[in-house]
Amino acid sequence: MNKRFLILGFFLLSALSFFSQTERVEYLPTFDNKLMHYGFYLGLNQNDFKLNLKESVVTNANITVAPTAGFNVGLIADLRLHKNLNLRLEPGLVSNSKRILFNHLTTTGKPQDSIREIGSTYLHLPLVLKFSTDRYKNIRPYILGGISYDYNFSSNESNQDDNSAGQFRMKTHNFMYEVGIGVDFYLYFFKFSPSIRGVFALNNEIKYDDDANSQWTAPVNFMGTRGIFLNFAFE
């Protein structure tokens, strides 16, 4: 699925770039002179977890993650720092789901013990720097990078039940870094900016079970989000 996101994004950016270069009229010629401007974005995402397992009392631990596609939506506030550099705040909501498979429990426990369905909704607050090339006709490629704070509404961190009661818990407050590429397309009424970006957790997001020898959480040294976002911005 990650490859499909990348291939789709690549062909979309290529097709729009070709179309924009054939346009003879330069649209929105003074758009980039604004000190501030606003917009919104819609997009798709696919998030899974980077897992780092440790040696523990749980021998032969085998944990995998099966992600599914989700969606993201948010607002944009853009501050012009330089003709090629902008600071952007992009608050939004990100929704996705994942299935965590505890393969080492498939033969030793009940079937329901080996699977945890994780449905997550995040308040996503990225602060990113956008480095743009000079404009060519109606296109302007860029790269971006920054940090973000995620508030996980579905974390269940304060839930007293843990995996022994069928409840998988995660931390509520998380921090990420993200990098990406995209292209600004200047259209008649607005600027359209598709981008592809990777998002990676800085902190360990797992909430460990009360039992230090838990078959679900004891083997995990680090579990952090990693994902691909395909965003479509309208400014």
Rank of each mutant, 00 (worst) to 15 (best):
V58R: 00
I63A: 00
T64F: 01
V65T: 08
A66N: 13
A66F: 13
P67V: 05
P67R: 04
T68E: 13
A69F: 14
G70W: 06
F71Q: 06
N72S: 10
N72H: 07
G74A: 05
L75G: 15
A77M: 13
D78G: 07
D78S: 10
L79K: 04
L79T: 05
R80M: 11
R80Y: 12
L81F: 06
L81G: 07
H82Q: 15
H82V: 06
K83L: 13
N84Y: 04
N84L: 03
N84V: 01
L85S: 01
N86K: 15
N86Q: 14
L87R: 04
R88K: 13
R88D: 00
L89N: 02
P91C: 06
G92W: 04
G92D: 04
G92I: 14
L93F: 07
V94P: 07
V94A: 10
S95K: 02
S95L: 03
N96G: 13
N96D: 11
F102Y: 15
N103C: 11
H104S: 03
L105G: 00
T106V: 06
T107F: 07
T107P: 03
T107V: 07
T107Q: 13
T108V: 06
K110Q: 15
K110N: 15
P111K: 15
Q112S: 15
D113G: 04
I115H: 12
I115F: 12
R116D: 15
E117D: 09
E117C: 02
E117Y: 10
S120A: 11
S120Q: 11
Y122I: 13
H124M: 00
H124K: 05
L125H: 14
V128F: 06
V128M: 05
F131Y: 06
S132W: 11
D134H: 09
R135D: 12
R135V: 12
Y136G: 12
K137H: 08
R140C: 09
P141K: 01
I143C: 08
L144K: 05
S148L: 00
S148D: 14
S148M: 02
Y149H: 14
Y151R: 05
F153K: 11
F153C: 04
N156L: 03
N159W: 04
Q160W: 12
D162W: 00
D162F: 00
N163L: 03
N163T: 12
S164G: 11
G166P: 14
G166A: 05
G166M: 09
Q167M: 13
Q167S: 01
Q167L: 01
Q167N: 09
R169P: 01
T172W: 06
H173P: 10
N174V: 09
N174G: 03
F175R: 01
M176E: 02
Y177M: 02
E178F: 10
G180V: 05
I181M: 02
D184K: 15
F185K: 14
Y186H: 13
L187R: 09
L187A: 09
F190W: 09
F190R: 08
F190C: 02
K191S: 11
F192P: 09
S195C: 06
G198F: 05
G198M: 03
V199T: 11
A201H: 01
A201S: 11
L202P: 04
L202S: 08
N204K: 07
E205L: 02
E205Q: 13
